[in-house]
Design a binder for these strands. Sequence first.
DNA 1: TTGTAAGCGTTATCAC
DNA 2: GTGATAACGCTTACAA
Lengths: 341, 341
Amino acid sequence: MAVTLREVAEKAGVSAMTVSRVINGAAGVRDDTRRRVEEVIAALDYVPNRIARGLLSSRTGILGLIVPDVVNPFFTLVVRGAETVARRAGYRVLLCNSEADLALERQYIDDMTSLRIEGLLIAPVGDRSRASLLSLTRRAFPLVLIDRSVERLDCDLVQADSAAGAREMTEHLVAVGHRRIAFIKGDDDMSTSRDRLLGHRRALEAAAIAFRPELVFVTTVDRIGGYRAMQQVLRIEPRPSAVFTVNNMTALGAMQALREQGLAVPADIALVCFDDVEHLAVLSPFLTVMDQPAEPFGTIAAQLLLERIGGQAGERARVVSLKPDLVVRESCGSRPRDRQS
Amino acid sequence: MAVTLREVAEKAGVSAMTVSRVINGAAGVRDDTRRRVEEVIAALDYVPNRIARGLLSSRTGILGLIVPDVVNPFFTLVVRGAETVARRAGYRVLLCNSEADLALERQYIDDMTSLRIEGLLIAPVGDRSRASLLSLTRRAFPLVLIDRSVERLDCDLVQADSAAGAREMTEHLVAVGHRRIAFIKGDDDMSTSRDRLLGHRRALEAAAIAFRPELVFVTTVDRIGGYRAMQQVLRIEPRPSAVFTVNNMTALGAMQALREQGLAVPADIALVCFDDVEHLAVLSPFLTVMDQPAEPFGTIAAQLLLERIGGQAGERARVVSLKPDLVVRESCGSRPRDRQS
DNA sequence: TTGTAAGCGTTATCAC
DNA sequence: GTGATAACGCTTACAA
């Protein structure tokens, strides 16, 4: 098997402790002893066993990160942000994909706990993730929620101001002339879906437009969900002039449905969403979006987590609310030449 | 701290071994004893410590996965594929982002070894990754290369047939009338860059078009690299009628440069690349690409790795070559109405 | 400056 | 069926 500390010690003619001191850079080793040990380490290609170390110190140097969908560019950027900060602090990231599945998420949380990760970053499936997370918060396990809050779970959280963002988006749609707006969202179990609908309603209210429940479509917040919801939208009469989807993946699915029906955006119907679609904006700056600063979600969350692990955080839960940015492009139909067609 | 097996044992009035048997579903425990232990486990919210288990059995249940860039949709899909297969087999995936940095990659490999992962999936930075990987292959550590081979490193590999794919793409460009084609690629240290240039050259040769070294541009295979390389392309006279980039990210950067110069694709210049850009195809089916089956890269690699871990693999290295698919859309200028403008 | 002893949480082995 | 003991590779506390 792999070389152990004790083998190094033997070969160098010292005790295990001395080798341990050398690899940890501890003081109290004579220079020539240290040098000799280092030579043996190099010669044997010795790598200390973190597992063993973690058993003793429960410092494994691993953080957990659970997201519902790595392929969603929003979460991909979150991952990159978190990983960068973690690495700088000497931590590695164990990434898992819950696939928006509660049971899977729970299993991952258990797995990670059993691997003795030092802290967990998670974009939870929804409010029902509470049960799994409660077992962590109860024993003050370092935990930071990303993107979505969990009802009655008091812990650190990095999110966007969804209500304000959605309100601004709807205000924009209204400003460019839309009055009949469909809203495609996820289950109410998800804070983002709740909050964004709320913002949407507030904007309608402020514009004295009656809120119509039949224009709200609940689906899974992925591409297939957006696709199906859009098919439903197209079945109602009269057809809405605009559709607002709760995230980027739903918008892509919606777009696909529209394309299949031969409908043009925004000529036939306008389409806007929360989240930008990384890479898409470069090739085809077309979709009007409420852009969330995805990478900062990851970096800030990781920072909060590291502070908590380091005991510099205090007992109170900290909530960071990031402001999303309205990016007006073409799909909302705000450009007169598109709207008049 | 966390609840231990021994605490469960005490509370249940049995020995540690009995608890161990229960959590491992081993035979030889009376039903009522088992039930009693299970109750205590549930009551105390006990989660076994995999770290401790791993110390003994060196079975940590973790696979490592190192990619140069999680944000690249190709690798994101690889990640999802690998993770899915790993999970089904009861493994978790430790994901790291080497950022195409050799030193970082080496550090991650060391870290992972020291965490006693059971196997490693890696899309290596390049041939120079050999030194780090050799220390693994020497001790027959389960290892599968993804996407890129490493010179003189004999181990399992899942890759695309880059040469054939590039050749087909260039043949297509030639077929639709291009004769002056720029090629944007990464360093020769990367097998994909080497192989794709090779295929490109073969196609030119077959078409009796002279290969011009001054039309080959070497850069980093990311967006900024593509952006810079395209700026160089635009400086040469006469301007190539088509540009072939070695991957999706470079194509996006190239596109950005073209946009800034006010050049239209394909009217002013054609642009094609290796790899599709997930999500982009839905919203804007525009880029003509040599699509690689990204998710299968991950699933197949994970399967190979699991076989190796399970000792079902034999000594010989296995090489899986996946066939890429030409997807003709608009950017190659193959549609007459675009070419004649 | 260096070494000894004990133990982290689990499991393999062998008794009972 | 169940339990005692030792061991995995390392570090903490203390002794030399």
